[in-house]
Write a protein that binds this DNA or RNA. Sequence first.
DNA 1: TAAGCAATTAAGATATTAGTTAAATATATA
DNA 2: TATATATTTAACTAATATCTTAATTGCTTA
Lengths: 105, 105
Amino acid sequence: MAADLIFEALASRPRREILAYLSAQELTAGEIASRFEMSAPAISRHLSLLEGAGLVSSERRGQYVVYRINKDNLVNTLTGFAFEICPTAGPLKRESRRLASRKPG
Amino acid sequence: MAADLIFEALASRPRREILAYLSAQELTAGEIASRFEMSAPAISRHLSLLEGAGLVSSERRGQYVVYRINKDNLVNTLTGFAFEICPTAGPLKRESRRLASRKPG
DNA sequence: TAAGCAATTAAGATATTAGTTAAATATATA
DNA sequence: TATATATTTAACTAATATCTTAATTGCTTA
């Protein structure tokens, strides 16, 4: 189940912070690591977990690896779950479908 | 940070399933436990964690303890995080504010 | 090729989580 | 009171998660 991986990935503050950083721009693994007081290998594991959950994608660029966020996957999962729990949010639901049908931003 | 507790609480499939059950109706601890192949104490711990995160409330009724969901807290946290990550979802954002300003359902 | 930087993988220590059974607490009722 | 049911707490075990440092891999460049 994809939601399992995604909620697992979100259950870590540093991982949520990484997503917040990546929501503004794509960054290399090193640039991300420099924003945390944590070793590079630790960040690498977080990134690997986020990628496994489909929340980010990576691309090697020379000796760097650039990470970017997959916004649609995150938004769809969270709003999808919220609506499963709170189906009375009708307008929100329609809006989510509209977002889901668009190509990722 | 409230979001920490909430995302931690959501990082468990049984806990998400409990929320789904409670989204339809309030249930006693025993009724919830009977829906899982898990001991009552285990379910009790899950419920305690969900309550600590503010996602459910409990009320003793005779020898029973009845649990109900706090939908607004869940929806606000999830959509709030989604918008932090994906601020382009303007209409969704307005809708969320509207929901947030209502009394819990 | 060799040296250097970027990033990941490996190995290992520590802490936390999630489940179990047994014991305790709270309420209802004979 | 005594007994039964509902729920939680306690004590414990097993599995996972999350760091660390050291070693490895990939790419660039002298």
